[in-house]
Design a protein around this nucleic acid. Sequence first.
DNA 1: AGCACGCCGACT
DNA 2: GTCGGCGTGCTC
Length: 687
Amino acid sequence: MSTDDADEQLAFIRDTVRRAKPRTWRGALLADELPVARVVVDKGLLSLDKFFDYAVPANLAEEAQPGVRVRVRFGARVGAGGRREGGELYDGFVVARLATSDFPGVLAPLAQVLSPERVLTPALLTLCRTVADRYAGSLADVLQLAVPPRHAKAEAEPSPEPLPPPGFPAVGSWDRYVDGAEYLTALADGRAPRAVWTALPGPTWPEEIARAVAATLAGGRGALVVLPEGRSVARVDAALTELLGEGRHAALAADLGPKERYRRWLSVSRGSVRAAIGTRAAMFAPVRDLGLVVVWNDGDGSHSDQRAPHPHVREVALLRAAEEGAGVLLGGLSVTVEGAQLLRTGWARPLAAARETVRAVAPRVRTVTDLDQGRDAAAQYARLPRPAWEAARDALTRGPVLIQVPRRGYAPRLACAQCRTPARCRHCEGPLAAGAAGAVLECAWCGTAEPEWHCVECGSFRLRAQVVGAKRTAEELGKAFPRVPVRTSGRDSVLSEVSGEPALVISTPGAEPVAEGGYAAALLLDGWALLGRPDLRAGEEALRLWMTAAGLVRPAAEGGTVVVVAEPTARPVQALVRWDPAGHAAVELEERAQLHFPPVSRMASVTGAPQAVEDLLSLIRLPEGADVLGPVPAPGGRGQEWERALLRVAPGQGAVLAAALKAAQIARVALRSPDQVRIRIDPPDIG
DNA sequence: AGCACGCCGACT
DNA sequence: GTCGGCGTGCTC
């Protein structure tokens, strides 16, 4: 660049600043009012996670309002004579219109306004920013989760006129909960009651959710319900339609197709519909004047988003409630440790039934160890402990029987086939697993081969690893109970409902169909497989899965029986027998606190090639008292060794940890550290 | 991420 | 003297 060119450039910039009305590099005519558009560019790079200012051409002045989708040229370089060249077109959103820009250079113009629809509302923008910060992600990544793809035809249709608020609903079955009626009243009164709700077993919870929504709408505010899968969305959808009729709520199910989905999302965004329900993507639904956010069954893994930065429905719901002043209803048959923590800190109040109410509606729960001898021929054939077989046979005279079988491959650590003592490495006490060759045992921690394992407790040489899948269980039980229809519900074909006729219903956890009139009995098989998983949450998760199944069984007074095949002294088994999920969660929380585990501490995982992980760990500036655990070898690398480190900080330092991870990741990329590092706040699987 | 600019070694 | 190494910094 010659001296003349440089002077000209400086003069241009001075000119721009003085006139407070930037010219574009093409010199196009600019908007008279607010000629600067602040834009979030849809490029997920952490180092680009900020706003960029663009000049608003006069012809886009009307349409380029905050919240609209735009196209902008980004990444152009300045060529000879100060001219910009190249630069690719990116999607983005206008977040503000301004009179001036604090950018010292020359602004590029907006290339195009894709649509005048203001989809990124201020509340949604704030939420996405908060979520991005919480999860050490970029705003652009979160926006992709929060704002659905545009569908022009759906957008062209007007949304219907909003209906007036409904009347306050009848309290209905909420009267079974201590303070249940008061909770609904608080919602209708415009307050923000926050509750961890231990729902009673049985088929009434969808209706109870619907009443809470109706109470919120009655008070003139909006409501949001997020459930883990489409089947439960459909049930709450039906309950809402029953209570409110059509037109007051929108179900944002994933299987609707892009047009219908966007049409419904717009009806929420435009304020034409005040209540939204759906699966996890609905956590961002731009419900106006949010008065209540409901999360059902927050322990379900589906509530954790698979896409970066992996926000969790419960956490997003809590952030929204805090930001938007909404009430919270964190409900399920069981209670998560996170729920227990909200109770312990006093952030939320318990919403539960009195002990005698629970006893009146819960089924009778019996425990059986599968070490029980005395199997008769038929029971042996079906691989069932005799009491379980008898319970099924007895119940089949009265109705359908649910049999819950852990998924194949839901394999825990290897254990002695005889006494169930976990098989451990002789050197480091790590868990043994089948090695890469398949036949040889290896320690999953230190890799030492163990060719001659025998049980240290009972001397047996037999190991048990795999559970028998639902399909084979169905075959075997079919033979054990001839003339009884056998139905299966599992991964590939999930039944949502079965009739009240006697039948054996074999299901993997989470796929249990609802039975008309309730199941006469449920058998929860292979409990050891759930309890023995090498996961911090194994106990909590086992109880959740059992209660989900047991909650579909008739009350004890109507003969409803649950038989759980598991070690009777195990804490989750005892909690199931007592039907006390809240107590179980509270005890688990206490234990986690002592071990400095989440959710009391905040954790993050860092996974990738060893060098990349090391680079990140060397760059990160952790707060005082933070721990680095590992790195240790981790699965996931394709053809390459991967490592994973866990970072742990004290309660209250989650935001600092996220910020430090983000900064370190940016620094690592700037230093050309090779390969990717995956950062995950609140990793779901802590061995 | 791309893609520039920028400041030190071996070559026609 | 120049071509080119990849360190550092920017993208409105």
